[in-house]
Design a protein around this nucleic acid. Structure first.
Length: 271
DNA sequence: ATTTGACCCTGCATGC
DNA sequence: TGCATGCAGGGTCAAA
């Protein structure tokens, strides 16, 4: 489910209901997530209140006192606001009950997500310390892509999905950005020119910003913190459209596998 | 050092 | 209708 725009949509959706509200109860129904739910989660949360919610890559950071909770939604996770009395559904694994009867409720059928304490500062936690720049920050540009890609034989699509290069670019938006930039996803990263990487960095920023504006992409089950679906799916040009005509030239879009992920592209428009 | 593959888990679409 | 198979938005780790 969630790529960067969906995580950002979630952060914005839940923040007003969560920040500064006292935590009165924590209910964990399933401790076996990708990382086991910490045994001290309940005791450390109850009575505290979260500070300002932040996002780094696809991680949500929820500061609480001198600690920070790190929450990752994996492929099928969602965090949304429920009310006390709303019956938990299957795969509603964690409830953080807040003063005022709102609940921060975590749902994750595949359990690839996790909630864990950040180990020390973000600089010390190896889950965060090796991450590349945020795609929407000025630190990320075509120069960086060009510099890091020299000599790399991996496909350019795989390259831009590498978290040490740039974070938050998952399969949907990598596919879309490459289409918008007119670059063949199979092309070796080391054989993409600076000029084309400048264009690609721009299309990555454009597509992510547009998706955030639309509240993310709902393919099957993504909902924002307040329960609404995202509307970016209607804007997708290539992802999920294999066999359908290219919106630009009309040729049938092709699907291949790169780095074990489905990749759709137009053989005419992307070279 | 880069790159590939397996793996974590459930649900859904597809085809027989 | 039932069953088997393959595939899915992510990330980590070991091995090649």
């Amino acid at each position: 489910m969630p790529e960067l725009p969906e995580v950002e949509t979630t952060r914005r959706g839940i923040a007003p209901y969560v920040e500064g509200r006292e935590i009165v109860e924590v209910i964990v129904r399933q401790r076996s997530l990708r990382v086991p739910v910490p045994s001290d989660l309940e005791s450390l949360l109850i009575g505290g209140q979260f500070g300002e919610l932040a996002r780094r890559a696809k991680y949500l950071l929820l500061p609480l006192g001198d600690r920070t909770l790190l929450w990752h939604l994996g492929m099928s996770g969602s965090l949304r606001i429920a009310r006390v009395g709303d019956t938990p559904k299957k795969h509603d694994h964690v409830d953080v009950v807040l003063e005022g009867s709102n609940i921060l409720r975590y749902h994750d059928p595949r359990r690839f997500g996790f909630v864990d304490w950040l180990q020390g500062s973000a600089d010390l936690d190896t889950r965060l310390s090796r991450l590349g720049p945020e795609p929407l920050s000025p630190n990320f540009d075509g120069q960086r892509l060009y510099r890091l890609s020299r000599g790399r034989r991996a496909a350019v699509k795989t390259f831009i999905m590498d978290n040490t290069v740039v974070v938050g670019v998952g399969n949907i938006y990598a596919t879309e950005a490459l289409f918008m930039a007119g670059i063949d996803p199979r092309r070796a990263a080391g054989r993409v020119s600076l000029e084309r990487f400048e264009r690609l960095a721009e299309t990555i920023k454009t597509v992510l910003a547009a998706a955030i504006t639309q509240g993310g992409t709902t393919l099957r089950d993504f909902v924002s913190g307040t329960g609404e679906p995202g509307y970016f799916a209607q804007r997708l040009n290539v992802y999920g459209r294999a066999g359908e005509p290219c919106r630009h030239c009309g040729l049938q879009l092709r699907q291949i596998v790169l780095g074990q992920r489905a990749s759709v592209y137009c053989a005419v428009c992307q070279t």
